[in-house]
Design a protein around this nucleic acid. Structure first.
Lengths: 121, 121
DNA sequence: CGGCATCCCTAATGATACTG
DNA sequence: CAGTATCATTAGGGATGCCG
């Protein structure tokens, strides 16, 4: 019985690690202070660089530039330079970036609820 | 028409900010390298301190201690010191912590999928 | 076993100025 | 407008040792 229990515990422990690993992967990709806010803005609609800088309050052009580059490298967003005009580029979610929607929505929902809860207390 | 368009754009911009704010709130609470992995482990089952340290690979006791304290302060987890035994404490999700489930599941799901995608490419 | 204290280092971010 | 370059600062986190 104790042997069986040990085996069960070990299996549970392994299973638990299998839950954690993908979560850590996600954090690598969309973690940090800025990426989810940027993605949230882009899930709303496509934005230009300076529009993003206004929406994501407090971000510097330096950080915005870097984060956009990382998100693009990971295939979550795409950059389109408008051909007609000069010095205009637009950022948008790729289909793969749109697949983050469940995460974005669940976070937004929980966060909205939490804010209300904190305010009312 | 251009006036209407400006009003519409401004409304959209405000609405977008309303999407971003709660997301930033959530990041404040469960962001960073360790909190979501810890919460994921606890969503699986309650854990003791050293069990968590094993599950959340690479975390030091210092960081685990600090993160657990923050999560408890935010009402997401609870600590139970077992009365019978000495020096044993268990951590578990509170009901409020369990309300994070949608976030945890959506991240785990996306992360699992992403890992498969990366591996196969 | 479950932590806390100290010291230290690096990565992340900010501030500012500049450019095509 | 959409960034880049440089410098300064800070927060996050690792290593280690100690303690009830």
């Amino acid at each position: 019985m104790s042997i069986l229990k040990n085996k069960t515990n070990r299996r549970n422990a392994e299973e638990c690690k299998l839950f954690i690993r993908p979560v850590r992967d996600v954090i690598e990709i969309i973690g940090g202070k800025w990426r989810l806010p940027i993605l949230t803005a882009l899930s709303f609609k496509k934005h230009r660089f300076n529009e993003l800088q206004i929406q994501v309050d407090g971000i510097t052009s330096r950080m915005l530039s870097r984060e956009l580059k990382d998100l693009e490298l990971n295939g979550l967003i795409e950059k389109n330079s408008l051909p007609e005009t000069t010095s205009i580029s637009e950022y948008n979610l790729t289909p793969y970036g749109k697949s983050l929607d469940n995460i974005l929505v669940s976070m937004r929902t929980w966060g909205t609820n939490h804010r209300e809860k904190i305010m009312n207390v």
